[in-house]
Design a binder for these strands. Structure first.
Lengths: 339, 339
DNA sequence: ATGAAAGCGCTAACAT
DNA sequence: ATGTTAGCGCTTTCAT
């Protein structure tokens, strides 16, 4: 690999001039600059990122702290990563995938202590997240995909749960349903302070109230079996329910089975929709389910962009809320009473 | 961040001694070593990877070339990444996620020219893959998840398609089926030289032949709609088929619909299994499908391990073939004629 | 067994 | 506008 010196020799100038010409850090005569660029091109010169980073204290590498694959892990998480990696690449940065071990704080201490990364991207942020406190205290720039209860001045990109819930409610209300039921994520996740569980729950309730339709929640099935059970309990307690939004896609499997077991059909007897599941997952169901698809790639992109913005300058904290996209399946229809 | 010099001062020794003590690169008196370690611990010293890399030409960073999300993209690809990242971490390495742009070769030239990575991990390797030629020519160490037609001396970890096909055939033959049909991946992927499409196809044929059961292939549905059609054509041409293995999970959705449309049931009238789909996907179906789950995390881990082995020493090329795991669903049963 | 010093490739202050 | 020079934090000869 040719170095700056090689380019300098070939262009008959000093190294610092080459550096300046290539980085635009100080004025260089047009003719000189041309010679330098030519020499660099001929040699196939590539700046050594390590040397540059050692000197400048900026590596242009971002770490994405990647949680250990939980049960309900999939596309969404991957899209955070690919979105962030893409956006980083476009802005001249690189993304390091840092799997989170048992001790996330130790992990962070490690990765930030190496001088390898300029900043950290956090995902799967919980309402109370010790990682944010550590990073703030350590003075490491970071941004969040998702958000804590009190993001303060931390940059974040999260799902716009309020808008998402409004869209969902408007969808079922528009079809003529008068009561919507909501199955939240599993009790485990909920108790763990997983943001989407809490926020989606609250916002669905609020949106239903605002729209003036009935609303039933309190169920948190985390598996097909639990989904089946929950649905049966639901109908027992609220036989008037005609529309159901489900967050856990395995629970949806159970709901569909329970619907069939009862001799009911979707969408004739029940409008069923997924919340925060990708369309790819929704179309694995039969019938194809309506879903509110999370903007995962976009959130990943925003996460990287915000962090890079922060690294390059400052400005007020960025707060992005992106709504899910309603993807219509074959599981939405007016309630039986109207048809 | 404290540097080696800080540690040296505190321990009252020369920098080079600290380096030696911490890296074990030359003998250091036990007492001195202890003092140094203590000083390092007290200061919370972390070696600066950039400085180390600049000097030693080894960064302990691996790049994972991540293809642009295709249609059938999901868990599998993510597990390659997380598996590789985990294994790398355990071995003291880091994993850079490098999304592949339109021009993969340019991408590679870029990422390897920066002096940032010690080696490259390739995934989604096609039978003829220009990336391998580039890397070989450039002298960049790399390993493959998947493999080219002629891997030569390149380290790889791939699915053991022969064993996987044998297991699948044994499963259906063991249930009493006499004829197995096989739906390959979409024509696009197949034509593109995507390894699993070709290899799975060949090995299923061979395994069926070896087991002495009938075998039907030639179908490549890449969507639910195509799956439905393919199944109808299949039954028209081969009414004796009682078992079907499907590679594309969207196609499986169509098959299931077609089965239902005919008034048939699974598994009573058709044994249906997925090939190379994760159990998590298989259980989204109703009934839960039997699947041959790819060892994706394991392949990712192996990919990283092999590459690190190669970087640290040499030895004969490593070739790992890992079979899929048969995960039983509710879609497997003896053929009707036997029940 | 330990220390002194050179240098990896780059940036940035300081000269000219 | 350009050149000279001093490091960034580390590894690695070469001395001692």
């Amino acid at each position: 690999m040719p170095s700056l010196r090689d380019v300098a020799e070939r262009a008959q100038v000093a190294v610092s001039t080459v550096s300046a010409a290539l980085n635009g850090t100080r004025p260089v005569a047009a003719a000189t600059k041309l010679r330098i660029e030519q020499a660099a091109a001929e040699l196939g010169y590539r700046p050594n990122l390590l040397a540059r980073g050692l000197q400048s204290k900026r590596t242009r590498i971002l770490a994405l702290l990647f949680p250990a694959p939980r049960s309900g892990f999939g596309l969404t998480e991957m899209q955070f990563a690919t979105g962030a990696a893409e956006a980083a690449g476009e802005l001249g940065y690189h993304l390091l995938l840092s799997p989170e071990s048992a001790d996330p704080i130790e992990e962070l201490r490690h990765i930030t202590g190496l001088g390898l990364v300029d900043g950290v991207l956090l995902m799967e942020v919980r309402l109370d997240d010790e990682r944010t406190e550590f990073l703030s205290a350590a003075g490491v720039p970071f941004s969040m995909i998702g958000r804590t209860r009190e993001p303060g001045s931390i940059d974040y990109a999260d799902i716009d749960f309020a808008a998402t819930a409004r869209d969902a409610v408007a969808h079922v209300a528009g079809l003529g349903h008068r009561t919507l039921a909501f199955f939240n994520l599993s009790t485990d996740l909920y108790a763990d302070g997983y943001g989407p569980a809490t926020r989606a729950g609250e916002e669905f309730a609020a949106a239903a109230r605002a729209a003036g339709i009935g609303y039933v929640d309190g169920y948190r099935p985390g598996s097909a079996e639990e989904g089946r059970e929950a649905f049966e309990r639901l109908l027992e307690a609220h036989p008037d329910v005609t529309a159901l939004a489900v967050m856990d896609d395995h629970a949806a499997v159970g709901v569909i089975a329970a619907v069939a077991a009862r001799g009911w059909r979707i969408p004739e007897d029940l409008t069923l929709m997924l919340v925060l599941s990708s369309a790819r997952v929704a179309e694995m169901f039969n019938p194809r389910l309506t879903t509110l698809e999370p903007p995962s790639t976009e959130l990943g992109r925003l996460g990287a962009q915000m962090l890079i913005d922060r690294l390059q300058g400052d400005g007020p904290p960025q707060r992005h809320l992106v709504p899910c996209r309603l993807v219509l399946g074959e599981s939405s229809a007016p309630p039986r009473s109207l048809s």
